[in-house]
Amino acid sequence: MSVTIEGLAKTYRGRRVLDGLTMSAQDGRVTGFLGRNGAGKTTTLRCLLGLVRADAGRCLVDGRPFAELDHPSGAVGALLSQEAHHPARSGRDHLRILASASGLPRQRVAQVVEEVELSDAADRPVRGYSLGMRQRLHLAAALLGDPATLVLDEPTNGLDPPGARWLRDRLQGYAAQGRCVLLSSHVLGEVSRTVDDVCVVAGGRIVAQGGLHEVMGDDDGVLVETDEPTRLHRLLVELGATTRPVEGGAGGLHRLLVHGVAPETIARAASHHGVLLTLLHPVQADLEARFLALTEPGGDGGGGSA
């Protein structure tokens, strides 16, 4: 189920929080909703889920407002807060209550507990959970209805690196099933390895959206330098790579930025065919710099509101 948000506006106490925000998230894709703290991300997601009434605009899940969905728990699973639990209840009991309230079969609780790898802690009181364990618990709650769309607000909070990698694999697998994943974040590191598309918000409006590298730049790859750029280009294209010339070569040397093959593959191909390489260096796009430029208060990205 795709998500569509059109012309969303919201004012709190005379302060414009959302300013005609328009964006979308598609089936089969992980979409990152990116912005600095206070940019309007959580308010947008709460409007999408019918928890906040917008002043103008509309939010649709597969063409319908959330309130008009026939089976909301099977359509959308959401993780918006880590505090939506009773600290004295066990994680399993928390999920059982949610399943009962949504008319879901009891066996779904055991399934999602195993799915988020929380089985060892499921029968302990939630007050003893670490931040990462609570994050897994609330992800389990979002998955209870086996929803077609996942909406997650800062889902990597509290997760250690193995946990963040586990979540990345899980969300990418979810999208690979043809489902829609929309996640918000103000941190690019892990998100940039997870999402297919991005919508960047600043000052309550979208300042950029599209494929991750389309929006954030596509300067990652392997930088090579040679005195035979045409010959090297042909060799690498035969290996399935793409290349483009970049500035920086001197004294008859030329530089290429190569995508699609590993540095060691480039080195072996050049050596085998007698092509001299004077530089071979992996480079990575500076996504953080692009993100900061887009969301700079008072710049092209607009100001930061709460």
Rank of each mutant, 00 (worst) to 15 (best):
Ala67Asp: 10
Leu137Phe: 15
Ala67His: 07
Gly298Gln: 04
Arg64Ser: 15
Asp220Trp: 14
Arg15His: 14
Arg134Tyr: 15
Val207Cys: 15
Arg255Lys: 01
Thr31Ala: 10
Leu143Tyr: 14
Gly251Pro: 01
Gly158Met: 11
His86Thr: 07
Val191Tyr: 11
Asp227His: 02
Val3Thr: 05
Pro263Asp: 05
Phe66Ser: 01
Glu6Pro: 00
Gly204Leu: 04
Gly302Phe: 06
Leu48Met: 09
Leu294Ser: 08
Gln111Phe: 15
Val258Arg: 01
His213Tyr: 14
Gly40Glu: 01
Met1Trp: 12
Val207Gly: 07
Ala25Gln: 01
Thr243Cys: 09
Asp55Met: 03
Gly204Phe: 05
Leu48Asn: 02
Gly173Ile: 08
Ser100Thr: 10
Thr265His: 15
Leu69Cys: 05
Ala78Cys: 03
Arg205Asp: 12
Thr4Val: 12
Glu247Gly: 11
Thr243Met: 12
Thr265Gly: 00
Ala202Arg: 04
Thr226Ile: 08
Ser184Asp: 05
Gly38Asp: 07
Arg89Ala: 12
Ile266Arg: 04
Arg244Cys: 06
His94Val: 04
Ala269Tyr: 09
Val258Gly: 02
Gly28Thr: 01
Gly274His: 10
Cys59Ile: 02
Gly211Trp: 10
Leu152Thr: 00
Leu95Lys: 03
Asp70Leu: 13
Ala67Val: 12
Gly248Gln: 05
Asp55Arg: 00
Ala306Thr: 08
Leu239Phe: 09
Glu6Ile: 00
Gly77Met: 06
Leu8Gln: 02
Leu8Gly: 01
Arg193Ile: 07
Thr243Gly: 08
Val258Gln: 07
Val261Glu: 05
Arg234Ala: 07
His281Leu: 11
His85Asp: 08
Ala208Gln: 03
His254Asp: 06
Leu152Asp: 03
Asp55Pro: 01
Ala54Met: 03
Val246Arg: 13
Leu277Tyr: 11
Val261Trp: 12
Asp227Lys: 00
